[in-house]
């Protein structure tokens, strides 16, 4: 289990590279979004490992918040106002 978590963290490092390096703002946005989803799965794995059932709530919350953030950024890029 620990090995799986470590391997997933390497995946998050790849995303971090893209988030720091990415030439455009969208590259960074998608990298951060993917990173949040990976953290959500790491949290689920930790919930399984340490038998802490409440950590899975955190995992759902991370997924929801990153989704909303990415949508807001996409709307901003389109040059629209946020309320339509």
């Amino acid at each position: 289990m620990t090995i799986l978590i470590v391997v997933l963290s390497f995946g998050a490092f790849f995303c971090l590279y893209r988030a720091l390096q990415g030439p455009s703002i969208s590259d960074r946005a998608i990298a951060v979004d993917i990173m949040a989803v990976i953290f959500s799965s790491i949290t689920a794995l930790m919930a399984l490992k340490y038998k802490l059932a409440y950590l899975i709530d955190l995992s759902i919350a991370i997924a929801v918040i990153s989704f909303v953030g990415t949508l807001a950024l996409a709307k901003y890029l389109e040059g629209r106002s946020l309320d339509d």
Partner: peptide, 23 residues
């Protein structure tokens, strides 16, 4: 959570791709 991710990640990618094309 799996169901949620299955629905939201493609939608976020679609919105971001559209935004970046227009941008």
């Amino acid at each position: 959570c799996a169901l949620f991710v299955l629905i939201t990640v493609p939608v976020a990618a679609h919105a971001l791709a559209r935004g970046s094309l227009i941008f």
